[in-house]
Every structure is written in structure tokens, then in C-alpha cells.
């Protein structure tokens, strides 16, 4: 009996050598429990060791194996070959990002944006460790928990047409994380994040496409975070118009 196979059409690109990205086809064994990442590992181990791509945990936690699978941003560790029968499967680097080599994209822009929204708990005055933990009720945890599930895989940036057209756009994950910390009862950093969010290229750049929430592998709803941040920003703006003398929250 001949072994069942599947074809992967993989984008190859070596800046300096190739003038532009090209597609290379690989035939891999088909296994019902294999994901696209398993197929890529098979190619690297058995067929062509020069194929470059990022991966680490292979269980949907590290967020490093995001690629375009048949044109849709996916974690390749969660994209089963069986869902793409009979193939071929097109595997490309994440859209909207510069390519370093093959399927590896440059993270610098996202990392810089992530840093700008200060995604950590900010306190006006840190209390000493001897005073104990910052306690939180289950309801206070639920307020932000969904948004804390983000694994920085950047699938939402690859799905966002606005980011594709305007690279300065702060983008879904960074806004969702800013919102996550703004919602955290232990956090006091709203005023520090607000200037970044309320920029023209902050939340206001979003045109309600909503694909970010569709492709998120962790069930985060960045689109909701963006729209709710717009409401908070608009409320701030309105208050500053009506009561310019009042202190802002």
C-alpha cells in the first residue's frame, strides 16, 4: 500500500540571494494527527534543512509559529493537515510584516508598540512586599481575564487590513493588552497609556473590520477592546470639552 501524502507549497526567501520570495513544493507523509508545523519539521529534518521558521512549544502557548495557512493567519501547531485535505496547503510568512528569511518575519515593530502601551501593572506608589499581595475579587479578575490570554502571536496584525495599509497603527494586540491593564483593579496606569491609545494612529485608526477577533487563537476579542477604548477616549474628550477646568481621571 502506498503511503498517503500531502503537498505543502512553502514560501522561500533569502534576502540578498533571492530578488523576491518564491514558492517551493514539498511532499510530506499525511498523518491524521499531524499539524502543519509537524509537516514543516518533517521537511526540515528529512528534505531540506535550510527551511527557516519559528516555533517553540507546539501547543498553542508560545505564540511563535504563526504563519499564513491557505491565506489565513494560523498557529501552525494548531492547524491540522486533515482539515486541509486533499491539499495542497499554502504556507506563507505572516502577512503585513517584513520577511527576514523564508517563513520568519521581523517582530521589531510589534515589540516597539507593545512597549509603548506599558503592558504591566503600574502603581502610583508601590506598597512594600511586607504589606502582602494586592488582593482581587473573582469579579475583578473576570473584568480583564479574557484580554490577558493574549500570547503575542501577532495573527491579529496579519489579519488586520488597517495595519496592512497604515503600519503606524498601534494594532489589535497592543491595544487589547493596554486595555487589559487599564481594566485591572490593581493598576493605576490609565493616564500613562491614554496618550498612546488616543493618538490618531491609536484606537481611532481602527475601521471596525473585526478580523482580529476572528483569527485570535486564544479567544481574545481585540476588536471589543478597541471599541471600548474608543468609548473611554471619547468620554474623556467630551468631559475635557464640557469641563476643561476639571482634573482628568
Amino acid at each position: 500500500m502506498t503511503e498517503e501524502t500531502m503537498t505543502l507549497e512553502v514560501t522561500r526567501y533569502r534576502p540578498g540571494h533571492d530578488r523576491e520570495p518564491r514558492t517551493q513544493s514539498f511532499t510530506v507523509p499525511y498523518r491524521t494527527d499531524w499539524v502543519v508545523l509537524d509537516a514543516l519539521n518533517h521537511i526540515k529534518d528529512r528534505i531540506d534543512g535550510t527551511l527557516s521558521y519559528r516555533w517553540s512549544c507546539r501547543m498553542g502557548v508560545c505564540g511563535s509559529c504563526g504563519m499564513m495557512v491557505n491565506g489565513v493567519p494560523k498557529l501552525t501547531c494548531a492547524a491540522f493537515l486533515r482539515d486541509y485535505r486533499p491539499g495542497p496547503i499554502r504556507v506563507e510568512p505572516l502577512a503585513n510584516f517584513p520577511v527576514i528569511r523564508d517563513l520568519v518575519i521581523a517582530l521589531d515593530d510589534f515589540m516597539e508598540k507593545l512597549r509603548r502601551v506599558k503592558p504591566w501593572i503600574i502603581r502610583a506608589v508601590e506598597k512594600p512586599v511586607s504589606d502582602g499581595e494586592y488582593l482581587q475579587t473573582p469579579a475583578q479578575l473576570d473584568a480583564y481575564k479574557q484580554f490577558s490570554m493574549c500570547i503575542n502571536c501577532m495573527l491579529c496584525y496579519a489579519a488586520c487590513p488597517v495595519y496592512g495599509l497604515e503600519p503606524a497603527f498601534l494594532g489589535p494586540a497592543a491595544i487589547a493588552l493596554a486595555y487589559r491593564y487599564n481594566l485591572d483593579s490593581r493598576d493605576e496606569g490609565y493616564r500613562l497609556r491614554e496618550p498612546v491609545l488616543s493618538e490618531a494612529v491609536g484606537v481611532w485608526e481602527c475601521t471596525f473590520v473585526g478580523e482580529c477577533s476572528v483569527v485570535c487563537p486564544k479567544g481574545v476579542d481585540p476588536a471589543a477592546a478597541i471599541q471600548r477604548s474608543k468609548l473611554a477616549g471619547a468620554t474623556d474628550w467630551l468631559l475635557s470639552m464640557i469641563m476643561p477646568w476639571a482634573g482628568r481621571r
Partner: peptide, 17 residues
Amino acid sequence: MATRKTSEPFWWLLFAA
């Protein structure tokens, strides 16, 4: 990066209403 003044909140409030 300098914060650019934006009229977006005004239009967004009308949009939302």
C-alpha cells in the same frame, strides 16, 4: 512620538449615537 491632535472622538461620538 509627538501626540497628534485628532478630531476623531467628536466624529466617533456622532457615529456611535
